[in-house]
Design a protein around this nucleic acid. Structure first.
Lengths: 121, 121
DNA sequence: CGGAATCCATAACGATACTG
DNA sequence: CAGTATCGTTATGGATTCCG
């Protein structure tokens, strides 16, 4: 038994690792894009406006490494590569949805608070 | 009516702003620390191992600006400053909890997937 | 005590060019 | 088509010093 690692600052803490994964600019977007089924690399790129090839590759690799996305290569010429959420990947959508719902419900208040705060300066 | 801004890449998208807020290294920790009641600046610093004064100040300012934390200055010498979650701040704990629970439930699998992926190289 | 200001190292990200 | 490699910029966080 190692230490109980509930401290999100600890790199080994599950919640910290979660936040590191979804905190970046693209992961949530990619998971959302793949929610309805498999897509080819280029199709994902087209759907996510502004993503670079580098970041798409990099983020997909990370998700694949974590077992959240599965990569399937069809050995044709030109190559065809499809990505789809694994079962684990699909379950991730639940907490993400909770976050989206919180944002939808509270973000107007937050933005109002910001305006007020900024004016008070 | 402005554009519908559901695209998380869009800086104006509520979900994107949420992720920007909780994606940093300290916000979630601070919110968790304040969950049980108000704390002084120094007390928060002591409870969160490894945080610098700069990041504590900076993160608290952000949370205050967003109306999620309230700052109370007691004009004494030396000064005493207390921080506590607002009602909105407390509601944020729900989606955070969803994330923690996902992490607790799936992180072992994710870590196993990583080992397997890394070995396959 | 609770900051603010400054400097610095690193990591994240984007743009571009090249490849099987 | 689906990458890889390289480079430059910007964002982020830590250490230090100073202040009311």
């Amino acid at each position: 038994m190692t230490e109980p690692q509930w401290d999100p600052y600890n790199r080994d803490c599950p919640t910290r690792q979660m936040l590191d994964r979804i905190g970046d600019r693209w992961t949530v977007l990619i998971v959302g894009t793949l929610a309805d089924g498999p897509l080819r690399f280029g199709e994902i790129a087209r759907r996510i406006d502004g993503i670079s090839q580098k970041m798409l590759t990099q983020t997909l690799r990370g998700l694949e490494r974590d077992g959240l996305v599965e990569r399937t290569l069809y050995p044709q010429v030109p190559p065809r590569v499809e990505y789809e959420l694994t079962d684990a990947g699909h379950t991730l959508r639940e907490p993400l949805k909770a976050l989206e719902e919180w944002a939808a419900a509270h973000m107007a208040t937050v933005i109002a608070a910001r305006s007020e705060y900024d004016q008070a300066v």
